[in-house]
Computed example of a mutant assay.
Amino acid sequence: MVHAGQRVDAIVFDMDGTLIESHSVVPAAYRAAVLGGGGRPLTDAEVIAGYPLGPPGALLTHLLGRPATDRDLEGYHTHLATLAGQVTVYPGVSELLGRLAGAMPVALFTGASRRAAEILLDRVGLLGHFAVVVGGDEVARPKPDPAGVDLACELLGVAPRRAAYVGDSPLDLRAARDSGALAVAAAWGHQYDPAAPADVTADIPADLLALTA
């Protein structure tokens, strides 16, 4: 649980599994892009297993068995945009982001590409809440490396030790802790593991308001 007195100066959010539920849409877009690039049919599980490899370029290279081209990436983003209407926002997230407006700067760092993040966030009406959006294609190493959290904080003008990074997966929490940010576990997310070390746990999005108190 987040307690009053743990105030931070900024909050950085993960996207998938923290703000939005896109667990069926993203693998479907990858599967379609791989088929369009001449690859073999894949299962969702095969796509998801490659997520730790990094942003779309790295994952498509793995799934295709050859270097991904700009055309492959364009195909992935096109399929993602087509399917984005199926994405849902976790209950309470929109209300939380609205209440954070004006209270502190808010950023997003996701392992997805910046373009993918903007496609999905725009479709569900959340994009305008973020002063900064950092994609996994804008840093050299994927989570749990803290580079993305560090960059988001730098762009906000806030030291990581004065920020919180909110995510549902163990990789999110490791990235937060290695950056020096407050590692906040989003217990509503589909990759949440209660055994993964976190500084605090938020059971529902509204719990994060305690960080502004």
Rank of each mutant, 00 (worst) to 15 (best):
V139E: 01
E21D: 15
L42M: 09
P55Y: 03
G39Q: 09
E95A: 06
G36T: 14
V134I: 11
A116W: 02
D137I: 08
L53E: 09
R141M: 08
A107P: 08
R161D: 09
D9C: 04
D16L: 08
T110N: 13
L96R: 07
F109L: 06
V8A: 14
A164H: 08
E21A: 14
R123K: 15
F130T: 01
R31T: 04
S169G: 10
A29C: 02
A58Q: 10
A140Y: 03
L63I: 07
L211R: 05
G135S: 14
P27I: 02
R162T: 04
G57S: 02
D16F: 08
V93L: 03
L100W: 11
G189C: 05
P144L: 10
I48M: 06
L209Q: 07
G136D: 03
R161F: 07
M15W: 10
H62G: 00
L120D: 07
Q86H: 09
T69L: 00
L155D: 04
G102C: 07
L126W: 09
G38H: 08
D14C: 11
A196R: 06
L96E: 09
V93P: 09
G148N: 04
Q191C: 15
G85P: 04
G39A: 01
P52T: 09
V8F: 05
V166K: 10
L121H: 09
G128Y: 00
D9L: 06
A10H: 01
V93C: 06
L35R: 14
A49V: 02
S22P: 04
E118L: 06
D199T: 00
G180P: 10
I20T: 01
P55F: 03
R71V: 10
